[in-house]
Design a protein around this nucleic acid. Structure first.
Lengths: 187, 187
DNA sequence: CATCAATACAAACTATCGTTTGGTTGAAAA
DNA sequence: TTTTCAACCAAACGATAGTTTGTATTGATG
């Protein structure tokens, strides 16, 4: 039940925004009354925070596993391609709407997940740092800026997948290409 | 006075989010009482909508002028560089916080500016289409996807300028480089 | 000086928010 | 059967939201 409540809340946030995500709306979606939610959670904040943390954690592990499942000596381009694909599929896939919630949250709440987001960004920085070491990435590129830059672009993907009608694969390919070329891939 | 109210509301939204932007808070910032705002605006929605439209309109005209002030035969790379610079300075400069408001708005309100955002995106599509015609951009790149992709990245810039401590110039250069390489610049 | 918009205020209205409280239920444990 | 307890509900709480209404102040105009 706890999970169903989280799912309901996440769905409302993604589809209608944080404003529309009232305790009564969430309760209605799981066929309950607002007050009953307080049996499972001590506050609305706890619900949102759990959605956020669970979402980032899931994303982190999925992308990390994807990278690790490749042979260590796999070319940089292949790793990036896989990672981008993993990131994107986490955003557009079914039952994986968690991360998309983030966009709709008020700043006060977003700040609570800063540490986890930082951890996720580090995953990408490590990936690219290895690319630099391997001589596949232009060392002049400032990773501290590039990573949030292109992650920012990626996080918008669901929005314009719907708008442009492009498939998830098309988008993944394009995003990967842009990114690899952008960092001056040498191979 | 009308403008001051808009500025106050925009500032609150940017700094504390849409949630914190109550009529009473806006009124306090311009030394008024909540009810008085209704002499200038018929509703809170009207205020937010005007901020949004005015912000996009300003951004549109600024970027458009920037491009037009270059000689028509200027190289594609130069035009893009100038446009990116214009876009970014519109976001981090003083008295230009309008656009940054967008991030914090609930989806219901965002949708109202779809037409204006579309018009702005068209400006960029035209720029890149010219690049394709001039043989400077890889024709295989799907502009319908690339434009929102990299604009999505750009709109995050203020966020990580503060985080990374990078200067606005550094960021502009990097974003331009990434973009130009990304679309397969040939020159 | 009198008039009249323009402007702002005080105060209240309704709606809805997150939350609390005390009670009801149905099934498992004793 | 009796007890217990997790799970839910009905109803209300205070706080605060956007908004409306009637009134006071003000500066310009005649």
């Amino acid at each position: 039940m706890r999970g169903e409540i989280l799912n309901a809340a996440a769905e409302i946030i993604v589809r209608q925004g944080y404003e529309a995500c009232t305790m009564r709306a969430v309760a209605a979606l799981v066929d309950m009354k607002a007050g009953s939610l307080y049996y499972h959670f001590k506050s609305k904040d706890e619900i949102v925070e759990e959605i956020l943390n669970q979402g980032i954690e899931t994303l982190f592990e999925f992308v990390q596993d994807t990278i690790r499942n490749l042979p260590a000596e796999a070319p940089f381009a292949e790793k990036v391609s896989a990672a981008v694909g993993a990131h994107l599929s986490s955003m557009v896939g079914k039952d994986r709407t968690f991360m998309h919630v983030y966009e709709h949250l008020p700043p006060v709440i977003k700040r609570r997940s800063r540490k986890m987001r930082e951890k996720y960004a580090q995953l990408w920085r490590d990936l690219f740092a290895a690319g630099v070491d391997g001589g596949e990435v232009d060392p002049a590129i400032d990773l501290a800026i590039v990573i949030p830059y292109f992650l920012g672009g990626l996080n918008r993907v669901p929005e314009w997948i719907r708008a442009s009608g492009a498939t998830s694969d098309t988008v993944t390919t394009l995003a990967t290409t842009m990114l690899l070329r952008g960092v001056g891939l040498r191979a």
